[in-house]
Design a binder for these strands. Structure first.
Lengths: 230, 230
DNA sequence: TTTTACTATTAGGCATGGCTAAGAGTAAAT
DNA sequence: ATTTACTCTTAGCCATGCCTAATAGTAAAA
């Protein structure tokens, strides 16, 4: 019917699980609870899907030990991530979406677009290599550029860094940071890192100071820069 | 949770049935078989869905009599048609899709995009009022412009008309017509309408003659024009 | 080592939306 | 009026994915 290599694309659900395992599992295995929390489903549903992903050859699963992606599973997850990040870029740059609105729309669209659409969109956008949150966009062949950024709280006081990524899709977090222009590309100098509560104070390019508490600090990733802020 | 007026959007399947009833039913009721053929499902599945659409208040259904859309059902169908035609326009004009490729992609995307996306896309496209096939795009408020075009075989010989619409999404038909530039906007003069087999011969703007057989002729809709071809 | 506190799995259900096979309804021709 | 040729519905089944409640496994603290 569809030629010898025809593989029907995973359902929306299967794709969501693959992405969740990839995001949550890091290099190791993803636990039932972590995936359940991320997808807002009951953990019993996750156990069920882990077994099915195993059957489909998309994940390796050991009872009570969590699941990790097979090569095929990882490819599929990265394909979705590529779509997601390209779509976010398009929504932001061409349709006038705000930084914090893009995620939800892209989340639905990524399951509906074809590979053909994705590559034409990439061309339309000029083949960007990162999305509006500063996340790297996997290449069409499944390659993902290594990230050389590190968490904001690891920066020595006095150092000047460029924000390279904000790792969150929560609307409140994104609009808080967006309003203050603490977005990828922005330069900041670290003025204080308070050990007691983890609050980090930074000075932006306009000399404005921002004090950021623990949960927020963990989401901001930076790269070192040569020059000073001022 | 979602405010007093929150209505969750119909599923992909429900939407497909609503569109099919709208397209197939005309002003009257759509039969089980017609919808089954259009959606490539078994007719038993259609009977089942007709009953469910009735329960949901989206269609009126009488056993053995077919289904017709309620006001709410029609609104929902037209919303999907609007999305579909705007998406086709975008794919063709900005992503380099060909005239015959756009349908399939739009068919999947129309179920995934939000109203917000749709209106931003409409603005991006300059609020077009017809799609690449010449079909009118329903307005955001659900209004659909009346069509004043008529079938090609009703044109008196010698009249000059403008092709306003090609009513088909079949790839073979579209590429046949596309290659000959028999597309919306094109002017043609009717040279002969043969009663015997329904073949219509037209001359295009470049003086080229095209003889079109029955099934093809029925898909081409035209509008009268004042001036002559040459 | 034995509680204790989680975390994970199993069992059983439900809604959606497909299918086939069998039977009932309709309408046109005899 | 009855046969014939459809079309339509009913009944019963299956896969996907979600849920809750009950049970089992794990690991850390006592």
């Amino acid at each position: 019917m569809n030629g010898p290599t025809a593989t029907k694309p995973p359902s929306t659900s299967v794709g969501d699980y693959l992405k969740a395992i990839w995001e949550v599992g890091g290099s190791g295995a993803a636990s039932t609870t972590d995936v359940a929390d991320r997808l807002s489903v009951a953990s019993a549903s996750v156990t069920n899907m882990f077994a099915r992903l195993q059957e489909m050859g998309l994940a390796k699963y050991e009872r009570y030990r969590g699941a990790s992606l097979t090569e095929r599973g990882r490819e599929e997850a990265l394909r979705l991530v590529r779509r997601h990040r390209l779509l976010e870029t398009f929504l932001l740059e061409h349709l006038g979406y705000s930084w914090q609105e893009v995620h939800e729309e892209a989340e639905r669209l990524e399951h509906a677009v074809s590979d053909g659409f994705t590559e034409r969109l990439a061309a339309f956008l000029g083949h960007p290599d990162q999305d509006p949150h500063g996340a790297p966009i996997p290449a069409a062949d499944g390659t993902l550029a290594a990230e050389e950024s590190f968490p904001l709280d690891e920066v020595p006081v006095g150092d000047c860094v460029r924000i390279s990524r904000v790792k969150h899709e929560d609307a409140a977090v994104l609009s808080f940071l967006g309003e203050r222009e603490l977005v990828p590309g922005r330069l900041v100098e670290v003025k204080e890192v308070r050990a007691l509560d983890g609050v980090v104070t930074v000075e932006d390019e306009d000399g404005v100071l921002h004090s950021l508490g623990r949960p927020l600090v963990d989401l901001i990733f930076v790269r070192g820069v040569a020059a000073d802020v001022n």
